[in-house]
């Protein structure tokens, strides 16, 4: 029950891009075509779910017992950087095809605020291990949903006439704003109606 709540919250109600502004750089930068948006979306989902679990373990097995919670920011970002590197190496060895599809996006993920964001939000919400993992997957899927929707709209926009000052990123932001307006329909009341 709570897991369904977490999934709905992170995919729709608190969608990372459209309501929390986390992960905006790739949302604007890598959404020019659907194929790369899908690749980026899956790479981010993958890293986010593992990162949420790994940072939960660090927080609860290292930082809290040793009473050094103030080092949270440094350890989390290093953890994520190491994790991304490790995932990159692992995928390169185990599945060259997947590496070809995701490879170029992986280095970018370290500085994607969505990954550090989910780690910090899970810790601040006092989630347990499984809840953190589920939150990571859900937030990643929310990211995937938003970036894929955005890329399909931008592919259509390419063949339309856009006033010169609005071409490129400005129209992408405005499109994102209109998508965010639509996502305002998802709020806490929806969650209450669905699962009481």
């Amino acid at each position: 029950m709570t897991y369904i709540g977490i999934i709905i919250t992170f995919v729709f109600i608190n969608n990372f891009i459209l309501t929390q502004f986390l992960g905006l750089c790739p949302f604007i930068g890598v959404s020019k075509n659907v194929e790369s948006a899908v690749g980026m979306g899956f790479a981010v989902t993958f890293v986010m779910s593992i990162a949420a679990l790994a940072t939960w373990a660090i927080q609860n097995f290292i930082l809290i017992p040793m009473n050094i919670e103030f080092l949270q920011t440094i350890t989390f970002i290093l953890m994520i950087a190491a994790l991304v590197q490790f995932v990159e190496m692992f995928i390169q060895k185990s599945s060259p095809a997947l590496y070809k599809a995701l490879g170029i996006y992986l280095p970018l993920i370290t500085t994607n605020c969505a990954v550090l964001g989910i780690a910090l939000i899970s810790v601040r919400s006092n989630y347990n291990a499984i809840e953190s993992f589920v939150a990571g997957i859900a937030a990643g899927l929310g990211f995937l949903l938003a970036i894929v929707l955005m890329s399909t709209i931008r592919e259509k926009l390419d063949s339309e006439w856009v006033p010169a000052p609005l071409r490129g990123t400005p129209i992408a932001f405005i499109t994102g704003g209109l998508m965010a307006l639509a996502f305002m329909a998802f709020d806490k009341a929806l969650l209450n109606n669905l699962i009481g």
């Binding site: 502004f21 000052p165 400005p170 704003g177 965010a180 305002m184």
Partner: peptide, 25 residues
């Protein structure tokens, strides 16, 4: 109220960028 919510932020950002680009052009 919409301007203080997420949607307004993205719209404001888009229009400000467009304005800057327009004045440069």
């Amino acid at each position: 109220r919409v301007f203080s919510l997420a949607a307004g932020a993205l719209l404001v950002m888009g229009y400000l960028q467009a304005l800057l680009k327009w004045s440069n052009m």
